[in-house]
Design a protein around this nucleic acid. Structure first.
Length: 430
RNA sequence: GCGGCCAUAGCUCAACUGGUUAGAGCGCAGGACUGUGACUCCUGAGGUUACCGGUUCGAUCCCGGUUGGCCGCCCCA
């Protein structure tokens, strides 16, 4: 036998049985986002490497060491997208959307790629559902974004998720804050962990994120970013909170929500799930405002805000809830004898055309084996078709959960099945 | 990228400190029941013990490497 083939590390198949959960999340997201007026955008999975270097940031982990980058035959440096915001912004700019409408509401869903050490809820090909709002710098749009996530999570029944918000300031106040922070950290540089000594130079804000105990103490004593905002940023952040209150959305102000991407300004937020199934991968979604991103990519000076949700993680949580998402087979048709196979097959086709979910054992076989098959499929009803039924045009609709069979006319089968399904299940025979 | 744990049937796991034909439950298939599934009983298929090499009379077990998975750190979705 030949060597068995295998998939790429960190990239998973989603098989029937699991895929229904995914479809349910995707369907629900489309429905909820649609209500908010967001339209789906589909961008390529591959982009010019420079797009991510310029937007996500050269010093970030994502660009620094996690991108799948390769050269195509024309010598171009291309990368598998590690996130969805930059490609959306690129498309927004490329099609001059800002000249066509003042406000743009987009969402996307699809695979993203990061070369990382694998864990539960963390894969090299993972999937995000994200949304982008362009053209409004108002806090209302930040809050609309969060509301959209809240409504989606609610609709999915994922209630044990908390919203954490923060503000990173903007070009006016962040540099000033950053230098004050660096000043404070420098004073304690000897006590910082090895990683943080590097962060101090490369990305000092990240020190605030460090889990090391001593670093935390130093970070806690550091100037607080939310107290260092310039007046416009402070007002913006206050209004975000006020509008969250208006909508009755619960949140926590968490100065440690830094985000790992460079393009964020002002508002940042994360949705963090409490469920232990995710382990340390508890962030199911994150986002924020990036008012300078579009311009920095050569586009117009258009403010934007958005988020990304980890579809894989949402599905993990939903699977834990034990809900069933696969629609049941409504009718199974069995042929009692060879001679009835064609008539049965024809009936199956007709019922499917009528819109019923119908199964049939294409291999034929004994009636018994077909009945077993019917049981395995979880069919609500089974109909056995043989000589008697062909002669009389009458058949028995057998409820697989138990109870009396229902006499039906074959001419009338589809509506009879629909009626039987709508009827509350008969009490089990005692 | 760093540290630790693990890998036996489709799935969940056994195999008495290295010993002869590697077992069970579930699942799958067939039968008991030739026009009726599930429950019960019987039977069957399914393994290069992840892969490669080493030690040994002999390796699922010990050692090294590879690949894959899990946990913590880091980071994030």
């Amino acid at each position: 036998m030949s060597q068995k083939v295998s998939g790429v590390k960190g990239m998973n198949d989603i098989l029937p049985g699991d895929v229904e959960v995914w479809q349910h999340v995707e369907r629900t997201a489309r429905e909820v986002f649609g209500r908010f007026g967001y339209g789906e955008v589909r961008t390529p999975i591959v982009e010019d490497t420079a797009l991510f270097v310029r937007s996500v940031g050269e010093t970030t982990d994502i660009v620094g060491k996690e991108m799948y980058t390769f050269e195509d035959k024309g010598g171009r440096s291309l990368s598998l997208r590690p996130e969805g915001t930059a490609p959306a912004a690129r498309a927004y700019i490329e099609h001059s959307i800002n000249n066509q409408e003042p406000i743009t509401r987009w969402f996307y869903m699809g695979p993203m790629f990061r070369y990382e050490r694998m864990k539960t809820g963390r894969y090299r090909q993972f999937h995000q559902i994200g949304a982008e709002g362009y053209g409004s710098k108002e806090p209302a749009h930040d809050v609309e974004m969060m509301d959209m996530v809240v409504q989606l999570l609610q609709k999915l029944g994922l209630t044990d998720v908390s919203l954490n918000i923060n503000s990173l300031g903007d070009d006016t106040c962040r540099p000033a804050y950053q230098s004050r922070l660096v000043e404070h950290l420098r004073a304690h540089a000897d006590e910082l962990c090895a990683d943080c000594k590097v962060r101090l130079e490369k990305n000092p804000l990240r020190v605030l994120d460090c889990k090391n105990e001593r670093c935390q103490q130093i970070a806690n004593a550091a100037p607080n970013i939310t107290e260092s905002l310039c007046e416009p940023c402070r007002a913006h952040f206050a209004e975000v909170q006020r509008k969250l209150d208006v909508l009755g959305i619960k949140y926590v102000v968490n100065p440690r929500i830094m985000r790992g991407l460079d393009y964020y300004t002002r508002t940042t937020f994360e949705f963090i799930a409490a469920h232990p199934a995710l382990g340390t991968a508890s962030t199911v979604g994150g986002g924020g405002r990036y008012d300078k991103l579009v311009k920095s990519l050569g586009g117009p000076d258009v403010p934007a805000v958005g988020f990304g949700l980890g579809l894989d993680r949402l599905c993990l949580l939903l699977k834990e809830s034990g809900q069933q998402f696969a629609p049941p087979v409504e009718l199974f048709i069995a042929a009692a004898d060879e001679g009835s196979a064609d008539v049965a097959f024809g009936l199956v086709s007709r019922m499917r055309r009528e819109g019923l979910r119908v199964e049939f054992d294409t291999r034929g076989g004994s009636l018994k084996s077909q009945m077993k098959r019917a049981d395995k499929t979880g069919a609500r009803f089974t109909l056995v078709l043989g000589q008697n039924e062909r002669d009389s045009g009458q058949a028995q609709l057998k409820p697989m959960a138990g109870g009396d069979a229902i006499p039906v006319r074959l001419d009338d089968l589809a509506s009879a099945v629909r009626e039987a399904i709508a009827r509350p299940a008969a009490p089990p025979a005692s």
